[in-house]
């Protein structure tokens, strides 16, 4: 474990806690993409299958359980909670997210470290996570006023994978870890998708003005 990976995990943890708090306290999920949240449930279930077969550390196990539980909880709130589900921007969150699942799975069948069920599903989860934020970013451009809890949620979510990139650089040079192109390229694509959001988020933070994305 290094500081970049810990900071990344904490940023990721904070983002999901922030989102849950926003939904629970404001009883609203306005501006949040259900499609992205559902993709994250698939990502975590596909990636954390080794939860029961391989014990790495207490931290590792607890964090996997937390990410699975929070992502399922968020989807439950947005789909079934009588008050929250009314606030879902159903008409704006129109990205057909099931379209990205087969290509990611096919790519995982073609490009992976080793051809085993666990490895292919793990690889699939990396490819899917890289594009999972797309519905949310599209929804952001469609919703005029972005509340700052949502803005902070997306910033932390983007920051987590950016910190993981630093973690991989650190591990490659300091721990002489071997090249892990699948993680690196997926992580780069994922972080690159946040580029313009980061730009407008930092700009709004510097000028102390409301976060607005160009249409």
């Amino acid at each position: 474990m290094n500081i970049f990976r810990l900071a990344g995990d904490m940023s990721h943890l904070l983002s999901v806690i922030l989102l849950l708090l926003k939904i629970r306290t404001t009883k609203s999920c306005a501006g949040i993409s259900l499609k992205t949240q559902e993709l994250y449930v698939v990502v975590f279930l596909a990636r954390y299958l080794n939860l029961f077969t391989r014990y790495y550390s207490f931290y590792n196990t607890v964090m996997k359980l937390v990410f699975i539980a929070t992502s399922v909880c968020i989807v439950w709130y947005m789909r079934f909670h009588k008050v929250v589900k009314q606030t879902y921007n159903k008409d704006l969150d129109t990205f057909r997210h099931y379209v990205v699942i087969p290509p990611c799975f096919l790519l995982a069948l073609l490009v992976h470290h080793e051809f085993t069920v666990m490895e292919v599903l793990w690889t699939f989860s990396l490819y899917l996570e890289a594009v999972a934020i797309l519905p949310q970013l599209i929804l952001l451009q469609r919703t005029r006023n972005i509340d700052n809890l949502t803005g902070n949620y997306i910033f932390l979510l983007g920051a987590y994978r950016a910190l993981y990139l630093l973690n991989w650089i650190y591990r490659f040079f300091m721990e002489k870890a071997q090249a892990r192109w699948i993680s690196w390229i997926s992580g780069l694509v994922q972080t690159a998708l946040y580029a313009d959001f980061f730009y407008y988020y930092i700009k709004s933070w510097k000028n102390n003005e409301k976060l607005k994305l160009p249409a």
Partner: peptide
């Protein structure tokens, strides 16, 4: 092995 190497991360 690649497994312990790359799968100890979240």
């Amino acid at each position: 092995s690649s497994d312990s190497e790359s799968h100890d991360e979240l």
